[in-house]
């Protein structure tokens, strides 16, 4: 059996707070999971769920209270593990007195690359993330989105086997998001393993082989995006245009916006509705699944947690 790219076993982390740090807040509770070599794994969860904590534990920026983890078979305590790992921190910030080219060259030195190799890789990477024209500008003059691109560049500069990205789409405009998506897909194509955290479901659905959902420091499940999120389809929505005065029963349930009508229905009524629209000569603009929004999806999990906690409390009484 091939060595998994990332193996996490019973990782737990608590943060002390309050007077004399006597109180403790559980940030991550007994997390165990694995990411296979070559897969794109999405780590999904609302803010404060424990995504960044997990990633920081993997990168040894913070230390676990319990548990361990391995990357490509090497313990995370082994600093040589970073030779084959790339990491993009959440909302990255870099030495603002350096230019992008200087920063990338600085980081590349820690990977033992030769001067010629460094120069070539830095050039190529800046081109890849769309910063070729801004390479001589100090980072203090960069926008948030540009810093995100620099962050991505430094994460993959040394061609690592495992790439860990903490909220890689954060702060990017639609074009930037698309470029990041393309880079992730390219990494997958090259056989690299990518673990990224996000709270944007569409990104996860579009990119991930598997996702892990984490809420309140606990892993709620691991599976394909369809298994984890998509199965909760709440019905269908049809958008259409139809001439005035048509006797269409569907119109009673529809919402009108300008010339367009929008109607929602259970999945089993879809074909009947399409027949009606065809008979009335309506123009169907789109048919889409109604999925829970991110908020609804996570709120359902949080509510389920609370209900379970209440049930335990009641039965305890």
């Amino acid at each position: 059996m091939a060595t998994p790219a990332i193996e996490i076993e019973h990782l737990s982390k608590e943060y002390p707070y309050g007077f004399l740090n006597l109180k403790k807040k559980i940030s991550l509770e007994d997390l165990s999971m694995r990411v296979d070599t070559g897969e794109v794994f999405g780590f999904l969860g609302p803010n404060g769920a424990g995504k960044s904590t997990t990633i920081k534990l993997l990168m040894r920026l913070i230390f676990p209270d319990r548990g361990t983890a391995r990357i490509l078979g090497k313990s995370i305590d082994d600093v040589s593990m970073h030779q084959e790992t790339g990491y993009l921190p959440e909302q990255p910030y870099f030495y603002d007195y350096l230019t992008a080219a200087e920063l990338l060259d600085y980081f590349a030195r820690f990977h033992g690359l030769t001067a010629t190799d460094r120069k070539t890789r830095v050039q190529n990477m800046l081109k890849k993330v769309g910063l070729e024209t801004a390479k001589k500008i100090q980072l203090r003059k960069y926008s948030k989105g540009m810093l995100q691109r620099v962050g991505l560049a430094q994460a993959i500069l040394h061609d690592p086997q495992v790439v860990i990205l903490d909220e890689p789409m954060s702060g990017l405009d639609p074009l930037g998001r698309r470029e990041v998506r393309d880079i992730i897909l390219e990494l997958k194509k090259d056989g690299r393993t990518v673990l990224f955290s996000t709270h944007i479901l569409s990104d996860a659905e579009m990119l991930c082989d598997r996702v892990g959902v984490i809420v309140g420091g606990k892993l709620r499940g691991v599976g394909t995006p369809g298994e984890m999120v998509g199965i909760q389809t709440q019905g269908m929505e049809v958008l259409f245009e139809v001439a005035e005065g048509k006797n269409l029963p569907l119109l009673a349930k529809a919402t009108r916006t300008g010339e367009r009508y929008r109607v929602q229905m259970p999945e089993e009524e879809l074909y009947g509705a399409i027949e009606q629209l065809r008979a009335a000569g309506a123009r169907i603009l789109s048919v889409a699944q109604i999925k829970p929004t991110l908020e609804e999806f996570f709120m359902n999990l949080v509510e389920a947690d609370r209900a379970q906690a209440n049930a335990v409390e009641v039965s305890g009484k």
């Binding site: 990168m59 040894r60 920026l61 600093v79 040589s80 970073h82 030779q83 790992t85 790339g86 990491y87 993009l88 921190p89 909302q91 990255p92 910030y93 870099f94 030495y95 980081f107 820690f110 990977h111 962050g151 430094q154 994460a155």
Partner: peptide
């Protein structure tokens, strides 16, 4: 404070 350390400590640096 500025978290410039994060990316650096994720390199093979003790």
């Amino acid at each position: 404070d500025k978290r410039t350390l994060y990316a650096l400590l994720a390199k093979p640096v003790e």
